[in-house]
Design a protein around this nucleic acid. Structure first.
Ligand SMILES: [Mn+2]
Ligand SMILES: [Mn+2]
Ligand SMILES: [Zn+2]
Ligand SMILES: [Zn+2]
Lengths: 124, 124
DNA sequence: GTATTATTGCAATATAATTGCATTAGTAAA
DNA sequence: TTTACTAATGCAATTATATTGCAATAATAC
């Protein structure tokens, strides 16, 4: 027995699915109806990341956002796309565009991350 | 009288110049000879950012790095380039390549940031 | 139903950075 | 040179996010 199905996990997954955006612990705590501790939210989210169900990105304001993986295969993940954060409604979302960069001669590339802030179509 | 010239400021600027890389408070504290408080380093660095002498970027490990501005004009700054962090020697540097991204229809673009980790030419 | 152990809640801790406040020390004016 | 003004500093305390320890709870296999 590895992972167990719990009300907390179901509620968090549902919220992520219905929002269609990336959410921080803070946002989840504010929006979720299921009663659960702050720490439980973090632990649930981190377990999802370990299981490859979500990915986690640190925003330029210093908070982690969690988004459902899409287009990731079991053992071949790809989260190297840009993330957008709306300065008005605070919405964070994964953008389809991959982050591509060219390193100087002799460098070996590991991971890449990219952020864009601005105003979404609703807040524009 | 606005800003004053102090030993702390001179020492930090010198270190940034001689290193040629972006440095965190922690790195500066470890390398600087001038005796100064941790908080002073943060305050000096933040004042440099306010004055447009340096720019500050939050890395994917959650620490701020400070780099001298180059190619910035008095009132026209541009720090939207990729930043590289070496997983071996911890060096962080500004890359010349600008971060370019296309937002969906109706979105307004604000700032962009980009990070790449990997191994530098020395650690490769 | 029972045993096993993953999950949870709550308090405590970790990590990075900022703030409050009294003291020190640049700088411009006298 | 001396004085007045206030920017800069040191140290302690605080803020902001996230993680860890541990006892209690509850999901799941048998
Ligand atoms: Mn994924
Ligand atoms: Mn600049
Ligand atoms: Zn918006
Ligand atoms: Zn290196």
């Amino acid at each position: 027995m590895k992972r167990r199905s719990t009300p907390a996990k179901k509620a968090v997954i549902e919220l992520l699915k219905s929002s269609g955006t990336a959410l921080s612990q803070e946002m989840i705590e504010a929006q979720i109806t299921e009663k659960m501790d702050r720490v439980t939210i973090y632990r649930v989210l981190n377990s999802f990341c370990e299981d490859g169900i979500t990915h986690r990105i640190l925003s330029d304001e210093g908070k982690y956002y969690f988004a459902l993986c899409s287009g990731c295969e079991e053992d071949k993940h790809n989260h190297e796309h840009f993330h957008f954060r709306c300065l008005e409604c605070q919405k964070v979302e994964c953008l389809p565009q991959p982050v591509i960069v060219n390193l100087p001669e002799g460098y070996i590339q590991g991971n890449t991350t990219g952020w864009v802030t601005g105003y979404c179509n609703n807040c524009n």
